[in-house]
Simulated assay, not measured.
Amino acid sequence: MSGIVHVFVVSPDTRSERRLELHTTVAKLKANLELITGIPVDNQVISLLNSESDPHVIATLSDDSKQLGYYSLRDWQVLKVDDTNPAVSFTGQMTDVSQVEKFELTEQEYAARQDTVLAYKQRHQMGRFAPKGEEKVAQPEVPTDISVSARCEVESSEAGLSKRGTVRFIGPTKFGSGAWVGIEYDEPLGKNDGSVQGERYFTCRPKYGVFVRPDKVNVGDFPVEELDLDDEEM
């Protein structure tokens, strides 16, 4: 679509794919990015990169009056948003574990708890707790609401990161026991192209494919995240 580009927006706490209109001014972009990144407008420094793997800065969007088209943005480039005063907006602290007190249990305390993997294996006679000569392996079932071609979101341990995509495969695999769900991500957040260890289960672009357990998948109306900068929607 003329006048629109798709780019990745990254900040210390967020990463997402956005749709931008080239006639939008830098000032208006910053106002919208404050809602997404949590970085105040006055503290934002926006750099344009070719990709996340290439740290070279092509341009700095420093003139608030300029339109995005002035900086020649192209599809799938990266807008890197840095915070000049993180102490005020607390950016980066969501993923900084250096300030968190480490919680540790002794082996005896861990064995006494009933909400651990160890306790689960004991109750279900799995692994080293299985009857001699018999290994009891839990086989996860695929929920009935997961189907091929369904839109979905995969649980992420990274704060502010949405992993959305489309279900491309459901069933057993050669690389692991039980049921797996093959996902084609909207963004290159995956680990493969739909094949693992020489076996192909579906086809997608490299780094867009991933296999996860069914309990990590939420199926629903999850469109590709877009940043709509129309005035009437502000």
Rank of each mutant, 00 (worst) to 15 (best):
K121C: 11
G190H: 00
T84F: 04
V57H: 10
P86G: 13
D115R: 08
E21Y: 13
F211K: 03
S89N: 03
S162W: 04
S89I: 00
V117R: 07
M94A: 09
F129P: 04
R213T: 15
Q99L: 07
D115I: 06
C204R: 07
Q67K: 14
V148E: 12
P214V: 04
S16V: 05
A31F: 00
D145V: 00
G220V: 05
M234A: 15
L68D: 06
R128D: 09
D83I: 00
R113E: 11
V41P: 01
D63T: 08
V154C: 10
R15W: 07
D13R: 02
V5F: 07
V142C: 15
D63S: 10
V148T: 07
P40S: 13
Q99M: 04
G220H: 08
T144L: 10
H124D: 01
G127D: 11
T203A: 06
A31E: 14
V181I: 13
P131W: 10
S177N: 11
D228T: 13
P86N: 15
V81I: 09
S98I: 00
V217C: 03
V212T: 06
D215H: 15
G133P: 09
I36Q: 14
F222K: 04
E52A: 06
S98H: 13
R123H: 09
G92F: 00
N192F: 02
I58R: 14
Q197Y: 06
E21W: 09
K121L: 05
D63I: 10
V154I: 14
T60F: 02
E17M: 11
E104I: 15
V219Q: 02
A31M: 07
S62Q: 08
